[in-house]
Structure formats: C-alpha cells, structure tokens
Design a binder for these strands. Sequence first.
DNA 1: GCGGTAAAGTGAAACGTTTCACTTCAGTAT
DNA 2: ATACTGAAGTGAAACGTTTCACTTTACCGC
Lengths: 329, 329
Amino acid sequence: MTTLKDVAKRAGVSVTTASYALNETGTIGDATRKRVLEAAEELNYHPNAFARNLKKRKTQTIGVFISRFSGSFYEEILEGIHSVILGTDYELLVCPESRSARRMLLHRQVDGAIVFDSTINDESILKLASHHFPIVVMDRDLEGDYILSLLHDNARGVREAFCHLYEQGLRKMAFVAGADDSYDNAERQRTFLNEAVAHGLEVPVFPGNFTEISGYKAGQQIIASGDLPEAVFCANDQMAIGFLRAMAEYGLSAPNDIAIVGFDDIPLARYVTPTLSTVGTSRFEWGASATHQLIDFLEDETPFQPNRIPTVFIARASSTLVNNPSEKP
Amino acid sequence: MTTLKDVAKRAGVSVTTASYALNETGTIGDATRKRVLEAAEELNYHPNAFARNLKKRKTQTIGVFISRFSGSFYEEILEGIHSVILGTDYELLVCPESRSARRMLLHRQVDGAIVFDSTINDESILKLASHHFPIVVMDRDLEGDYILSLLHDNARGVREAFCHLYEQGLRKMAFVAGADDSYDNAERQRTFLNEAVAHGLEVPVFPGNFTEISGYKAGQQIIASGDLPEAVFCANDQMAIGFLRAMAEYGLSAPNDIAIVGFDDIPLARYVTPTLSTVGTSRFEWGASATHQLIDFLEDETPFQPNRIPTVFIARASSTLVNNPSEKP
DNA sequence: GCGGTAAAGTGAAACGTTTCACTTCAGTAT
DNA sequence: ATACTGAAGTGAAACGTTTCACTTTACCGC
C-alpha cells in the first residue's frame, strides 16, 4: 500500500503539500501540484479511507438498512435511492439485517441512515439519531428531531380499494393481515375495517405475515371453511398471489368466485393470472424522496419535511366483475 | 461521541487497559474488566470503526459490487451471500455501480470483494487483486492468482434446451442475444449456435441487451418480418418475457406459434402466461459459494476452487408442444 | 529472605490522513 | 532601505484505536 508519505517523498515535497495538492486545497504552485499528481499516478496511490474519515469525521456515505433482499419489494426503492445518490458525491451502502447492521449503525460508518428493517427497534433509533446523524425511517411512525418518518398514504389507497369493491355490490368481505409488527399492516387493516364499519359491514381478519405462503394458507383456510366471502383484501401483493394460488387449486377463480385485491403493485402483480388489482405505491419516488431529504439535511441542515408518499388504487382483472354490472347502493 | 479515553477515565484505568478489557485480550483482572465494561455501558460507548480499521488494517467486511438493483436477478444471489455471511463475523456491504463503487474498492474499505458489475473492467480487477485482497468475479472469465472466476455452466443448460426443442421436431430457430459485453451471453450464444450447426441448422441472431424491452422489440421485429421461426431462444428470461408480450400483441401464442425458452429462471418465469421454459441456475448457491470461498481464503488462505455452478433446463408451457408428439430424428 | 515467575497494568508509538499555525521569500509601496 | 503583503510551502498535532515493550506487584518454592 502506497501512502501519502511515499507520494510526497517521490515528488520531493512535504506530506502537507502533497495532501493540499491532491485535495486542491491550500495554496500550492502549479508546478508543484503537477509533480505531486504525477507521483501519485506513478505510485498508483489511493488515499486510505479510514485515515481520512477518522480525521474528517465524515464519510460521505449514507447507509440503507433493509431486512432482506428477496421479495422484490426493495428493488424499486433501492433504485430510487441509487438514482439520487448518483447525482451527488455521496456513496451508498446497503446492509441487510444482522448484528453487523447494527454494528455498522452504531459505529457511525455512515453519515446518515435510511432504515427499513423492523428488527432495529425504535429505541435504538431514537438514541442514535442526532444532529450529526440524521435518520429516515421508512417502516414506522416515529417522532423525533433528526428523524424523518416517511410513510405512504396507506389509508387513501385502502379506501379507494374498498370503494371499488363496494360499488360493485360486494358486501361479504375478508381481510388477510400482514406481519403483526408492521406499521403498514396496522394502518391498512385499521382503515379497511373502519371503512367497512362505516358502511355497515363486518369483516373477519385472517392472520398472515406478508409472505406468499401465508396468503396461500389463509386462502386454504377460508375456502375450506366453505363460507366464501365475495371479496378479500390482502395486506400485500405476495399474500394476494398466494391466495390466488390456493383458489386455483380449489378450482375457484377471481374475481367471479372471490374478488382479490393486494397492496404494493409489485412487478409480478401484472403478470399473474388473473392480473392482480392492487394499491400502487411509487416506491422509486419513496426511495428518492428519502435520499433527497437526508442529503439535503446533511449538506445544509435543511429541516426534514414530513410527507406521505401518495398511493393509488389500480383496478385489474382480479377484482373487476365483468358480467355483473355495478349496482350502486 | 464518547471515546475509549472517556471510558478509561471513568473506570479509573489507562486507555490500554480499557482496550484490552473491551477486546478480551491482554491480561486484565476480573474486577477491572468489570469496571471498564460498566463504564462503557454507562457512557454508551461504541468503538470508532475507522480508528480501529486504520490500526488493524482489516475491516471484517466483504463488499459486493453489483450494477443495479432492479431486474430481480440479484435477489437470490444476494440472499445466498447474506445467508453465508450471517454465519460468520463478517459484515456485508452491497454497493451499486457508480464512481463510488470504484472508489470503495480502491480505498480498500473491504477485505475482499465479489464483483458483479461489468462496468468495472478486467484491468482494474487484475491490478487490485492480491494476496491481501482476494476477489471473486461472477460475470467474466478471468485468470489470476487471488481471483476466482465463478461462472455457471451455461453450455450444459443451453444444450439441454436445444435438445428439448430439437426433439420436438422444431428446426427453424432464432436466438435473441443479451448484452454485447456479457460473458454469459457470449457463452450461451456460442453454445446454441454450435449445437445448431452440429445438427445442420442455421440460426439467425437478433440483438438485445437483457432488458424486457429489448426482448419485446426483437419479438416485434421478428414477427413483423413475417418469417416466423418455430422456436426462439432468448439469452435471458426478461427478454423472453418481452418477446411473449410482443407475441401476445400480435395475437400469437407460445408454444404453438413460436416456442420460447429463456435463461435464468427468475421468479417471474413461473407466473407469466404461458409459464416460461428456461434454464435454471441456482443463484442462491452461486452467491453462497462465492462467499464461502472468499471467506475461507481470508481466514486461512484456503486456495480458490474454480468450479462451475450447475444449470438445468426446466421445461414449462412456453416451449412444450402438446398436440405435437415428440418426433425424434 | 531471595531469585524467579506470572499476573496486572501502563506509556507511548503507530496506523495515514488533514489542518492549524507557522516560516520563508519575493515583490511592492512608501 | 524599510515594512508590509501574499504566495508557497512545512512541521507537528490530532483523529481514536491497538499493541509492543515495559514496570510494578504479589506470590511461590526453597
């Protein structure tokens, strides 16, 4: 490993001068600077990031903490984050759940964080967030200075979905829930049930955990009970897809036997048969927005702007009755 | 930020002692150690990773360099990598393509790398790889000490796919190629064409770049030409799915109008209509294998074991003729 | 009570940068 | 000539650890 010292020696200057020359700081003559740059080039010099960060107490890096890579849910968010990062001189690190993620956060190897990992608890985040370490949380509603909670507008999408079902005359509905500890699930479920109550309906809730298999099992259970609902709202698309699979196995089809709606609009949603009605959340924007705000804060302390990422209901085949014209109440 | 010095002061010991106590190294009495640990706890102390890494010249981190997040291609690989990492005391960083990725690599912020980003050229990798910095490349055939090239057995899968098509009596075939700079594409194309020649067939090649849209365009072009092939092999699933979309728009369907085969077995493959025949590569194993080898090397210099990740052809609906029983030549 | 040994603890250097405070020197206004 | 200025460059401290080499203390066998 060649160090700054080597470069300085080769260029015949002091370490200080070499540093200034390479960083284009200080007042260094053109000839000298040129010599230093050449020396660095010849020696294939690259500054040691640790020494630099140690001294500068800044890493020019933001960290994204997610729980896992699979499920294609993070893809677009990460793309959104990445797209913003590319326009800055920050670097991006993505870290999946593990003790190491926590270590990473604690050890301040990044200047700011975007947290998307429910295994990191609220307490840690509150403790960690500070003037010098802003945090954007994407999966929980958390108040605090230096914390931005960026959620999407679950309520709106769910309401639209409910309307869509209700206006088609469907009355007997069920809800398949996502993971217990999920803020999004809670909000979706609450909204759906409230909406139902407001329209005089009672909606049973079946447990799930956001995985395809849990949706499949909920489907089996509901179908086996023999008491078929007319419509089922699943708290995310993966469960909805599992539910469709269960229906297919029992020879049932959506939307005629049961109308199905999911949430997220994952890429798969438009490929399954029937295509899946869902609530779209622009995850790319979500990631981009989080990143913008975080970097703006880091750069000039622009205060966080809490806002809700919009959602919109997307009607596809799985919930759109064709031979059953809408009968408004 | 509380430092080791603060902890030492609070515990009434020297910095050295505090360091030894926290790292469980050196010879420190139980009582003292306890006092240090308490002090650290009370002060909410976390060691500064930069200082530590600077001194130890080791980061306990491996870096994965990918070109982008989308396409669901990396998901399983990353899961495979992650699963192995979890069993070690290494950390995992994923870094998407950008100048920063390059910077990261150069600045040695990781102990070893898994490279999956064709924008990083061979030269850099050869220059970088060393005894102290082993690199696993997943997307190119590169020889070098301290470099492991971990590819999958493209040839085998392609041959099986070809056989499958040929044995069903299909003779007029076409190939839709992936990105020019891709080793995998080159190998798939070469194998397919060779196989064709060996069976006396001539196969036109249409350009693509692995994206869904490029497959769609190739489909449009081929269909519009009016000269339909009986079978089309696409260099990956995304293009195959794009091709299917083009066919659907022209009112054609697979496999009866054109039999379609892809490569990769992405999750989507079994959800599209018709389900997509493809060559499966166990990407999870791929990532896991890369990680194992890298970590083994880092730990005890276990030499790299070049091997090919197996592939297997998976016949699904898009290429399996039903009313056309196989007619072996 | 003596040398020897092991345990417990410490001082200071080192890792590779950045940056503050300083020196040197040439040029310029008076 | 003198004093001042600004440009060009340097020495050394600092960032927060780890770890080498060392000291002190206590204990042991004899």
